[in-house]
Design a protein around this nucleic acid. Structure first.
Lengths: 170, 170
DNA sequence: AGCATATGTCAGTGTTGTTGACATTCCAAG
DNA sequence: CTTGGAATGTCAACAACACTGACATATGCT
C-alpha cells in the first residue's frame, strides 16, 4: 500500500503523517461513537411507535421551522417517498403541521405542533446530555478539533447545509 | 431549560459552558459527518450484492483475525440471527472461513480468505482516503481532540472494546 | 447426569431505505 | 393562454437489516 510507507525523517510531512493504523482507529472511533450517539434517543423511540427517521425529521423541522419538503429531503439525504411515509405519520399523529406556501402554493412548509415540540425536547434532551458529558470530559480544545475533523469529513453540499443551519440558529 | 442559563461571569465553569446551540451543532456535525463517512464504501457495496452489515463484519474480522462469533456479536451490537445471515453469505461466497475452536470446540473462529481480504482492502481504502483527507485538513491537534470526544461519547463497554482493538493492532 | 454456553436455524415482523409510475397543482416562459 | 417543467403526493413492489421467540446441536463444566 502506498500509504504504508514511512515519510523521510525531518520532513514537514511528518507532522501530517498518518498510518493506516491511525486511520483505522479513527474509523472505529466513528463507528462506536455513533452507536453511543444514537443509543439514548433510540431507547425512547422504541417505546413510542417511531424510529430514527422520525427523530431526524422532527429534529430538522424544529431546527428550521417552515422548511419545505424539498429542503428537508436534501438535509436528510433520502428519497421523497421515504420521507413522505415518515411525514405522513407525524402529521396524522398531530406532531407536525404542513402549511401550503403563500408565495409558491406547491410548496409545503413544515412546523412542529406543541406535541411535536414536546417529543423533540424529550429526544434531544437525551442526546444533548450525552454530548454535553462527552464535551465536558474531553475539554474545549478537543471539542474544537472534533468539529474541525467532522466538518472536513462531510460531503461538500452537507458542509454548506451544516453552515447554513449554524447561521440560522435561533 | 436548566442548561439554557448562563453561568456566573468569571467562574471556572465558563471554560466548560456549553449552550444548547453548541450541543445541537455537535449533534448535526455527527449526523452529516457520518453520512460522509459511510458514503464511499456504500457506493462500492451497491454494485456488489453486499450491504453495510457485510462491511462491518469484514472490517472486524480483518481487524481481529480468529475472533469468535460471540466476540463479533458484542463488537457489532446486533443479534446473532442478524449477524448469522450476514456471515452465512460471506462464508458461502468464500470471503470468510469459519474454523472450529481447538480448545473449545463450540466456538467458531473467523478469518478472511484472500477474496475476503481483497474486499476489505477495497472498502477500507475508500474509507481511509476520506479519513486521511479530513485528518490532513483539520491538523494533528484537531485529530487528537476528535478522538477524545468520540471516546467520551461511546458506551462504557464499547470504549473498552475500542481500546482492546487498539492494543491488538497488528 | 444435568445445567450452562456457543452456535446455528426457522419463522414472523417492523423500520427504513430503494425504484418506478402516475396524478395534481402551480409557476413561468414563449 | 398554452405548454413545459418543478414541487409535491401517492401507490405498489421490493430489499437490507434489524428485532423477537422458539428450538436444535454440540460441547464444556461441575
Amino acid at each position: 500500500m502506498a500509504e504504508g510507507q514511512a515519510p523521510a525523517p525531518y520532513s514537514n510531512e511528518n507532522l501530517l503523517f498518518l498510518t493506516d493504523e491511525q486511520l483505522r482507529q479513527g474509523i472505529e472511533a466513528m463507528f462506536f461513537a455513533y452507536r453511543g450517539f444514537t443509543a439514548d434517543p433510540d431507547r425512547i423511540l422504541a417505546d413510542l411507535a417511531y424510529g430514527r427517521a422520525h427523530h431526524r425529521a422532527v429534529h430538522f423541522i424544529n431546527r428550521a421551522p417552515g422548511t419545505t419538503v424539498n429542503n428537508l429531503l436534501n438535509l436528510l439525504g433520502v428519497t421523497k417517498q421515504s420521507l413522505n411515509r415518515v411525514l405522513r405519520t407525524l402529521i396524522e399523529d398531530g406532531l407536525v403541521e404542513s402549511r401550503v406556501g403563500r408565495n409558491d402554493k406547491r410548496e409545503r412548509h413544515l412546523f412542529l405542533t406543541g406535541q411535536g415540540k414536546a417529543l423533540e425536547q424529550k429526544l434531544s434532551d437525551a442526546q444533548r446530555a450525552r454530548m454535553r458529558a462527552a464535551f465536558r470530559d474531553a475539554g474545549p480544545e478537543a471539542v474544537a478539533g472534533f468539529r474541525r475533523v467532522l466538518e472536513a469529513m462531510m460531503d461538500r453540499e452537507m458542509r454548506f447545509a451544516y453552515a447554513r443551519l449554524k447561521d440560522n440558529a435561533p
